[in-house]
Structures are given as structure tokens and as C-alpha cells.
């Protein structure tokens, strides 16, 4: 997960800055999930315009971090998740990047998809604890334990949680709306697929405390029970 630190979040400045970065390594950043760090800014950025700028540049703005209360409210209104600063404080093995098949041309967006398909899922053997964040880049995430309140699990692919989901789960982080979240017991603070998210209030009801699958259908999230 990339975090963007920038003292000036005007659309014009970011456009120049990001375009320059993308020119250096276009394939690397294609549909990359990005979190904006608001630590150095006091005003409220125009999140809606920023979102469209990111989409235009084929990047995915997932959420913001280090936001003050007003910035948080504005981010929520613009459909962005408020996250803690990404940091790798869990010792989970990075999946070894599998070799792309020799026949696939590893260029353009088709190349990226081919690589994703051959990546091993990222497996977390233990419970993800409060304050921890796990990111499965370009692949699915499988958590054998629970995801605690205040913990965050993020994957470009699907997320499978075999314990309770009490924290935040963000699937399809690089914008893939076909990804899903499966959990054994739904008590989440937030679920998000490709940037569309629901907070815990919207999850209360029939599926709360049950095993559930969350997916995108006709531009909105839907929950169904696992059988």
C-alpha cells in the first residue's frame, strides 16, 4: 500500500507530481491503491476532485490517514475510508512473487492481470490484533484467526476471514469490483470493496454476528449469508 505524503493537496499540484511519478514506472503504479496522509495539512482538501484525478491517472484512492475530525467528516462524505497509517508491524510472510508464465507478455494491463492470477494468496496464520494492518498486494488474503476491533486487513484480491471480523476489511483495493469479502462472523467496523464502503451502522441487522459474504452488485454492496 502506498502512502502519499504531500503538504499541498491541490488538484493541480498533485496532477504534476503524480504524472511525473507515473512516467517513471507506469506498470508498477497501474491501479495502485493509495492512501493520502493528511498529517501536514490543516485545510480540507477537495476529496471529490482528488478522487476523479486519481481515477483519471488509473490510481485508486482508498482512503485517508492522520486526518483531523473535519477532514475525516469530509473524507467520509466523499466516500473515502479513514484508515490508520499503513505500517508493516505484523510478521506475516510476503507471498513469494510467482514467475509469470513465459508466454504471457508482461506489459500493459493484461500483463498485470496475468501476474495477479499466478500469485499465491497471502496467508495470516494468527489473529490480526488491534492496531495491526495487513496488506495483500495483488492477491487474495486469507486470515485463519479473527480480525480484532481496530485492526485492518486490505487486499487487492478477495478476503477470507475464518474468525470474527471486528475491524476493517478492504477488498479489491486496486479498484476491482468483482472481489468479495467472506467472514465467519460479521461484526465489522468497516467493509469496503473497490472503494465502496459500509460502516458498522449499515451492517447491523440480519447478518450481524453471522457468517457472511459481501460483494458488489449494480454499484452497491450487498451482503448474503454463507450456508
Amino acid at each position: 500500500m502506498s502512502v502519499l505524503h504531500c503538504a499541498d493537496l491541490s488538484v493541480a499540484t498533485l496532477q504534476t507530481l503524480l504524472s511525473a511519478k507515473l512516467a517513471q514506472a507506469p506498470a508498477f503504479f497501474l491501479q495502485a491503491p493509495i492512501v493520502l496522509n493528511l498529517n501536514d495539512i490543516n485545510q480540507i482538501p477537495d476529496f471529490v476532485s482528488l478522487k476523479s484525478l486519481f481515477t483519471e491517472l488509473k490510481l485508486v484512492l482508498v482512503g485517508v490517514t492522520a486526518a483531523n475530525p473535519e477532514q475525516k467528516a469530509a473524507a467520509h462524505a466523499a466516500g473515502l475510508a479513514v484508515l490508520q497509517a499503513p505500517k508493516a508491524n505484523v510478521k506475516a510472510r510476503e507471498p513469494a512473487p510467482a514467475m509469470p508464465p513465459a508466454t504471457s507478455a508482461a506489459t500493459s494491463s493484461a500483463g498485470v492481470a496475468a501476474v495477479a492470477a499466478t500469485m499465491d494468496s497471502k496467508v495470516v496464520e494468527q489473529t490480526v490484533r488491534s492496531g495491526q494492518q495487513i496488506y495483500a498486494k495483488g492477491t487474495d488474503l486469507i486470515v485463519k484467526g479473527a480480525v480484532g476491533a481496530g485492526a485492518e486487513v486490505i487486499a487487492d484480491g478477495n478476503i477470507h476471514i475464518y474468525g470474527s471480523l471486528r475491524g476493517k476489511a478492504i477488498a479489491g483495493a486496486n479498484g476491482d469490483t468483482s472481489k468479495r469479502i467472506y467472514c465467519y462472523n460479521l461484526q465489522a467496523e468497516l467493509v469496503s470493496i473497490a472503494g465502496n464502503y459500509w460502516l458498522s451502522d449499515s451492517l447491523q441487522g440480519k447478518f450481524w454476528g453471522k457468517s457472511a459474504c459481501i460483494k458488489m452488485q449494480d454499484d452497491s454492496l450487498v451482503i448474503s449469508e454463507l450456508v
Binding site: N89, V90, T127, V128, R129, S130, G131, Q132, G148, A149, G150, A151
Partner: peptide, 8 residues
């Protein structure tokens, strides 16, 4: 919640 954090 804090215990969960310390376990992490």
C-alpha cells in the same frame, strides 16, 4: 481492546 493491541 488494549489487551488485543498488546498481543499484537
Amino acid at each position: 481492546r488494549d489487551s488485543d493491541r498488546i498481543l499484537g
